[in-house]
Design a binder for these strands. Sequence first.
RNA 1: CGGAAAGUAGCUUAAUUUGGUAGAGCACUUGGUUCGGGACCAAGAGGUUGUGGGUUCAAAUCCCGUCUUUCCGACCA
Length: 427
Amino acid sequence: MKVSKMGLKSIKLTELDKMYPGQDILLQTGQIKQYGSGLFAYDNVVLRVQDRIEEIIKKHMDSIDSIEVEMPLLQPSELWKSSGRYDKYISDGVMLTVKNDKCEYCLAPTAEEAITKFAENRLISYKQLPVSFYQIGKKFRDEIRNRGYLYRGKEFLMFDLYSFDENEDNLNSTYEKVKQAYFDTFKELELDLVAVAADNGTIGGTRSEEMMVISESGEDTILYDGKNGLNVEVLEKDNYADYLKREYNITDINNLNKMKAIELGHIFALGTKYSESMNIKYIDQNNQIKPFYMGCYGIGVSRVLGVLYENNIIKTNNEIVGFSLPLSVAPYYLYIISNNEREDEALTLYHKLNEANIPIILDDTKDSIGKKIRNAKILGIPYIAILGASTENLLVELEYTKDDSKEVMTVSNVVNKFKEIKEKYQR
RNA sequence: CGGAAAGUAGCUUAAUUUGGUAGAGCACUUGGUUCGGGACCAAGAGGUUGUGGGUUCAAAUCCCGUCUUUCCGACCA
């Protein structure tokens, strides 16, 4: 990719939003564009970071044998009326609909009804269990108040998984499996995930945990000691002490530290609540009709995207200058810069890396080196290769933007280094 | 939906209090000098001041409506 082909807008950052400086940079530099409250377009780099998040989630969910599927975004009103949730979602104003003179469709705010219909008459025997389905798809919610840029939009990308088991023990085992897959996923995204006890009030079931990432940009407050934790909202629950002890073995909340976090996922062990009410059942080995023990699990992909920017901000002299995205999600590993004299060398490096299928950006504009470095950081590219006056010909200064470390190496060593990185991140 | 603020060039904004030719910085275009951490000089282009109505000789400015956005609250991934 060449900068001259990207249609980039260069801009000096003005004063940044104090709550969400990272996403404010994206907005100021045109990497995201706002069309209305909670409505955003994504430019190339941001979009491809999102693609990477999806790939990583899929990899880990596939590894626990969950099956990827896709539900329709346009869902007939009848589907929502059949579950009895239509009236509530409409009167709450959360659900958006499109209609013509013949019929009305609901724009999927969530997918329980659709997935239930998907499982109905398909999952019929204990021989098919356990099984789980997942999808990553757009969701539409006409939130009364959008906030935090990508954190809560009217249109957002969500991962949602639904599990079906024969009994409570199997459900618990599936629950733990999915929870572990969450930790593996977020480890690869280089985000420290914290599972905290949550109020399972509206959705119900036996237990639920919110998957949080500690972030100053977060809207939630949690109590956490490095191992166990809870969302402070649980403390508003009746008999919260019993609930915490019974489901999470938390007995003393005074030892926990208060911190700000952003909720990226939520997992629920539902039990038979929905299979009973929606009447989806299977036949066990004794020819008995039994309700499924279900679980549902979500990740706000758009929020992950936002927090990846908020939590990977880099500063120079205490001034925010951009991002250094983790290599696991960076759509481009390297941003190549040269002065006029060494343009040809930069082009050679670019071609060699392209031949090795290393995703990179060449800044082939006539801007000053300083401005090019600024642009690399605004885009969040983790490595910058500088071919300028301070290194001899055929040598490249490679800067790692995360810690500002610099090393000088030959062109072929640069190529080898990025081949190794590519190998390591399995791309 | 309750409460609060704000809409002026692509962005940040001045002029609003006290009505009188809408001004600047960044970004953009052209020419020249620069070229390792957001260069400089010169010239240029860019606005029916969110929108509709009212008051007035005259409205960005005053009044009323309306739309939009942001913030606090409730809800959520």
